[in-house]
Amino acid sequence: MCQISSLRELKYTLTNLTSITFTSYPGARDCLKNLSTLSCYSNIYPEFFYHLSKICQTTIHTLRIIFNESISNGLADLISSLQNLRHLKVCLHKYGVDLTDINTLISKFPNSLITLRIYGGIKCYFKAVIPLSFIARFTNLQELVFIFYSNEYYEGFNKLQYVVFPQLRSLNIYMKCPENELLKKFLENNGKNLKEFYVKSNDNSLNLAIVKFCPNLRNLSIRIEDNELEILETILISCQYLESIRIFGYKYYNKKGITEIIMKYSSKIKLFL
Rank of each mutant, 00 (worst) to 15 (best):
Q3S: 14
Q3V: 10
I4G: 00
I4A: 04
S5W: 04
S6P: 00
R8E: 13
E9L: 09
L10I: 03
T13R: 13
T13S: 11
T18Q: 09
S19E: 12
G27E: 09
C31D: 06
S36L: 03
S39G: 01
C40L: 05
Y45G: 06
P46E: 11
E47A: 07
Y50P: 00
L52I: 03
I55N: 07
T58Y: 08
T62A: 13
L63V: 11
L63K: 05
L63F: 02
F67D: 05
N68P: 00
E69L: 04
S70A: 03
N73K: 15
D77N: 15
L78C: 13
L82Q: 02
N84F: 11
L85T: 11
H87R: 12
L88R: 02
C91P: 00
H93R: 10
T104K: 15
T104Q: 14
I106P: 00
F109N: 04
I114C: 08
C124L: 04
S133V: 04
F134S: 01
F134M: 02
I135V: 15
A136Y: 01
T139C: 09
L141P: 01
F146V: 10
S150L: 11
N151G: 10
Y153Q: 09
L160A: 02
L160S: 01
P166Y: 08
P166H: 09
Q167H: 09
S170P: 00
K176T: 08
P178R: 14
L182V: 02
K184I: 15
N189Y: 01
N190S: 04
K192E: 06
S205M: 02
L206F: 10
N207V: 12
A209F: 08
A209R: 07
A209D: 11
K212S: 06
L217D: 08
I222V: 14
I224F: 04
I224Q: 08
I224K: 06
L229R: 08
T234E: 12
S238Q: 11
Q240M: 10
Q240R: 15
L242M: 09
L242T: 09
K251L: 14
K256M: 10
I258S: 08
I261P: 01
Y265R: 02
K268Y: 12
I269E: 10
I269V: 15
K270P: 00
F272P: 04
